[in-house]
Amino acid sequence: MFRKIDCVMVRVPGLTPAVEFYTRVFGLRPLWRDGVSVGMGMPETDAEIVLHTMDLPGDPSVHYLVDDVSNAVAVARSAGCVIREPPFDVAIGRCSVLEDPFGNLVGILDMSRGPRPI
């Protein structure tokens, strides 16, 4: 039986610097670790990012909900991220696309305009 799990695989060249970066910049916490991967927990959710060194195809990006995209872009830039797409407006707020120091795309979104009406 298949069950829904909120997990994204992110390839990195080395686990130790990637764990430090994702903990410091994005507030993730290590949940488990083996020789080739580390499960990182996201705050206030059971979603998991798996940092790994395996040669696997994977999702090209991770998406984070933030309080303020402009502030998050500034923090990420100062931490070594490249801004691939500067903040832009969407129906519910603002978005931006970053690239982490390991070459992975990171999408950020705020809901400064509120959720879509039902």
Rank of each mutant, 00 (worst) to 15 (best):
H52E: 02
L56I: 09
G103I: 10
F102K: 08
K4N: 02
I49A: 05
E20Q: 12
L28R: 00
D59R: 11
E85A: 11
G80F: 10
S61R: 06
P30I: 05
C95R: 15
K4Q: 14
V25G: 02
D67P: 03
P17A: 10
P117R: 15
A18S: 08
P13Y: 08
V106D: 06
V73F: 07
I49N: 00
V38T: 15
A76N: 12
S96I: 00
I5A: 13
F21L: 11
S70W: 06
M111T: 12
V62W: 06
H63I: 08
V10Y: 01
R116S: 08
V90F: 12
I92V: 15
S70P: 02
M111Y: 14
S70V: 07
I92A: 08
G107S: 06
M54S: 07
M9Q: 12
Y22R: 02
S78F: 03
F2S: 07
C7H: 08
L31D: 04
D46K: 08
P87Q: 10
D100W: 03
L65V: 14
L15G: 09
G58C: 02
M54H: 03
P30R: 09
F2L: 10
F26T: 02
V36T: 15
V36K: 09
D46C: 01
T53E: 10
R113S: 13
T23Y: 00
E44P: 01
P86I: 11
L51R: 01
G103F: 09
M54E: 13
A91C: 03
M1F: 10
A47V: 06
V25D: 01
A91T: 14
V12I: 10
F26R: 01
V8D: 03
L56E: 10
V106N: 04
G41C: 02
L98D: 01
V62P: 08
V50H: 07
G35M: 07
T16S: 14
P57C: 03
W32V: 01
I5F: 09
L51A: 10
R77L: 13
L15P: 04
F88H: 13
V19F: 04
N71G: 01
L31A: 14
F2Y: 09
P13F: 11
K4R: 11
F26M: 01
V50I: 15
